[in-house]
Structures are given as C-alpha cells and as structure tokens.
Amino acid sequence: MNAFRLLRKYISMLFQSAMEYRASFWLTAAGHFIVTFTSCISVLLMFERFGQLEGWTMWEVLLCTGAVQTAFTLAECFGRGFDTFRQLVRTGGLDTLLLRPRNIFLQIFGWRMDFTRIGRFLQGCFVMVLAVSHLPSLWFPAKLGVLALMVLSGAAIFTGVFILGATLCFWTVEGLEVVNILTYGGQEISKYPFDIYKKPYLVFFTGIIPYACSFYWPLLWLTGRSGSAWCILAPVLGLLFLIPACCIFKLGVRHYTSTGS
C-alpha cells in the first residue's frame, strides 16, 4: 500500500466522519463563506471610495485576494492536522502516531482535515473567476496556468508555515499566537500587492516566508508589469521553503522523544 493510496483512504474516512454531522457541516461551511465574503467586500468598498491603489485596479487586486484565499483555504483544509497540532500533543495522540511504522507527516495530514472550508474555497474561486472575466489580458492558457500555479504554491507555503507553527508546540505551549502573524496575517497581507507596503515587508515575505513568491511576483507577470521569467519561476522557488520547514519539524519530533511531556 503506497503512501498516496493511504492518504486517499484517510481522506475518505475523514469525509465520512464529517458527513456524520451534515447540518453542522453546512452551517460551518456557510460561516466560512461569509467570513471571506465580508473580507472581499471590504476590499471592494475601499476601491469604491479611493478608485485605485498605487496604479493597481480593483480587479487586479481582487484576483490576488481570491488566489490568496483559495490557497490559504486549501492549506487550512488539508493542513488542519498541523494547524491544530497542539491538541495532538496534549491528548497524547502523537504517541499513538509515533507507534506506527509510517511517515509521521502522512499520519498528521491524515489525522485531521477540515472540509467545511469548502465555503471559503468556493468563495475564493468565485472571486478569481469574476476577476479573470474582467481582465481580458489574462484570457490565455499560459496565464491561467500561472494563476493555478500561484494557488498551489501558495497552499504549499501556507502548509509549510503551519508545519513550522506545529513545531513550536514541541518546545512551548505559549506564545503560539505569534504563528497567527504568519498564517492569518500572511493571508491578510498578501491580499494586496506587496509593493504598497514598506520595502522590508517585501524582502521578508520573499526571502524568509515566501508568500510574495507565490502571489506578488507572478502577479506582476500576469498583469503585464514585468516580463521577467523569474516572476513565473518564483512560485516554484517558493516551494523550497517546505524543505527546511519539514527538517525543523523532524528535529522537533526528536526533541519530543527526548523530553516526553
């Protein structure tokens, strides 16, 4: 049984579990839909008032917003196990996972997923479609391909940040709120193109937590602001972020097995 098939099995069981509480599932999904909906409306209203943002049009920014939300949602749905990792440590569930002869990442992914995020996912997709329909310059397969790449790469990086946040749980139970800066804050800040912020932010979110690689740089290419191939490569380079994130998590596991608790 290979890892991929096991993951599929996990997903089907998690879905089965979620469907045991059908009403609750849809209510929560609706709640998530509304959360992102009001957030998008806010962007829209700001443009209504100000007209444009440093040369960016409303639909360009909404395209970015939609891509970020979709990516973040994917990460929240599938990376939920890392997002709520603290519970796994506290309840001793991690011990149970460590007692199985399987890759620990695979098992944590399979431990928990949150399918109610479908509400956010649909909302994000809807905004992207709407934005694309207002930006005729994007109606080329290559550009739509890059857009899809942005979403996937973004989802991977958000997941990486969840993994890093989970790693903190091995050392401390406090101060975990700081992780929210990088997850929810990262989502919030990437909603707008990074050049509206001060320079250090762009540097930090390109070189250290590479959200800008997933969203900002390819957005420059999509909207015709830059022709550089680096802009298309950036989402792929951003994925490198996952390597140190996973290594650090492994270190965390080693620390955990030497201190217990």
């Binding site: 996990y10 579990s17 045991e20």
Partner: peptide
C-alpha cells in the same frame, strides 16, 4: 485514549490500520 475513529464504523478503522 483511542486509536479508532470516533465517527466511522469500527470495521473501517480496522481497514485503515490494515493499510497503515
């Protein structure tokens, strides 16, 4: 604590363990 799944039939949990 449990290694079985709360909301799915026990048989499915067993199958998951088989795959694991």
């Amino acid at each position: 604590r449990t290694q079985l799944w709360w909301d799915v039939p026990v048989r499915d949990s067993f199958e998951l363990l088989r795959d694991i």
